[in-house]
Nucleic acid binder design. Structure first.
Lengths: 199, 199
DNA sequence: CGATAACTTGAACGATCACTCAAATATTAT
DNA sequence: ATAATATTTGAGTGATCGTTCAAGTTATCG
């Protein structure tokens, strides 16, 4: 038998990411992973070395996907501020059965592992920073295009933007009434649009 | 020997709350609890029934303390909006070594237990709601005192206020640069003060 | 000073944890 | 077909999980 195909590995990683995201690092057992990966313990260890490593690979996957999704949205956006505001509204618009209707996996990881698993926490912090840098870059694009005032503090706006996302996603996680979530997202989105200056 | 004094029980509960808050429910073991409570397993079970029950008692303690702290601050505040804004700034002003410089225990609990321990999650949700109701009441006081526009949506403002707190505390948890945290809290506090209308 | 009650102790419980490895099975190369 | 190689299998590892309880200790009271 040859090496497992990319498809198999990719499918397994996707499944691992989903359980980990749902249950968190500590609450996910090898039994859980055996079930969703449809692999026996030996195969899991042959393919992914350890539970911790599998978690780190899941984080990578999550991070790549999140960043790509944001960049794609920004590439298509008619203006930077519009793209940013839409990104916020997008979370509230998720269909009710969407498995992503919950807290960000990076956020969850940091809450779960900061005081217990420093290695995981460190990598996760780095990922969150890189995402925030992408937000900063988006605000800088808005500035370059004259949409945003020249003296705006893009790093500060990016931090607040990231905070807005956390807040919306936490409400998704809680299962708050969709109307209330839409209202919250709308509040945040308008804050972004209120930054727009006439050109 | 008589029943344990209130003092002893209180000290033990405080210690339990702190470990649970630091490590989270799943990552805290009986060993950890034995160490910080300075009690042997038998005593812990005689006094608190189970790990889950001890966690619930810790949550109660945390909730009571949080709500009381907020109410005290509001009672002393010269105006409702001032009190609310100060509450936000207060988090950024915490001394660097303060053990409370981290994510809210209720938030952490929900992230940690929503998909694994429904009983804990349900009680925690109720507590978060009651705190949000206190925020709503504060905004309503602002309205009654003419500080806030009569058509303001107090429940909506309360949800946004709670989101602001979560965001600040998550940054505390990350160990973000104090200056950046102050800036973030200042942004949120000014949003609250911007709601003030002339009377 | 005993007797009784209250509380603590820590060894031990079965269950589950993350993880290993020799044996079995499947694939490819010859 | 056969040999060589790659991968899967699942029972089993020691450690640790939350929990129990009979025995021991300490306080209170007559």
């Amino acid at each position: 038998m040859s090496r497992p195909t990319q498809y198999q590995r990719d499918t397994a990683l996707e499944a691992a990411m989903q359980v980990f995201w749902q249950k968190g690092y500590h609450a996910t057992s090898l039994k859980d992973l055996e079930a969703v990966l449809e692999m026996k313990p030996g195969s899991i260890y042959a393919a992914f070395s350890s539970k911790e490593n599998l978690y780190l690979l899941s984080l990578d996957r999550y991070f790549d996907r999140s960043l790509t999704r944001f960049q794609d949205l920004m590439d298509k956006a008619p203006s930077a501020l519009t793209g940013l505001a839409d990104h916020l509204r997008g979370f509230a618009k998720m269909p009710p059965q969407d498995h992503a209707r919950q807290v960000c996996m990076l956020t969850k990881t940091l809450v779960d592992t900061t005081n217990t698993d420093p290695e995981i926490a460190a990598r996760t912090k780095a990922y969150l920073e890189r995402i925030r840098e992408a937000f900063t870059a988006a605000f800088e694009r808005a500035k370059a295009e004259g949409e945003l005032a020249p003296d705006a503090d893009c790093a500060r706006l990016a931090r607040r933007f990231q905070a807005s996302i956390s807040a919306i996603r936490f409400e998704l996680h809680l299962g708050t009434d969709p109307e209330d979530i839409t209202a919250l997202a709308e509040d945040f989105a308008r804050e972004i649009e209120a930054l727009r200056q006439d050109t």
